[in-house]
Amino acid sequence: MCAVQERHAYRVRIERRVMSNFIKKISRRTIMQALIALPALSLFRNQPAVSDPNGIDPDEIVEVNGWILRRSDLA
């Protein structure tokens, strides 16, 4: 397994562990934080930006909860 695949496997394993423990251990506030966080993290798996059929620029810079993001980060 190459390094990239290995890292991906790690991430998947961690995310599964997180999800399985959500209901038992995590507060409502934390779930909200995670919902904000996870789309941003998906960026770093090098997923291509999806072009918006309504003509909204996916590269537009937006500020959300203190984060400076591309609009596509929120897709």
């Binding site: 562990r17 995590i26 934390t30 934080q33 993290l41």
Partner: peptide, 17 residues
């Protein structure tokens, strides 16, 4: 590193992890 990244956005969850 992944957990530390998560600590920026979801500190409580990252602390548990």
């Amino acid at each position: 590193r992944l957990i530390a990244d998560l600590a920026c956005t979801a500190p409580t969850m990252a602390e548990w992890m």
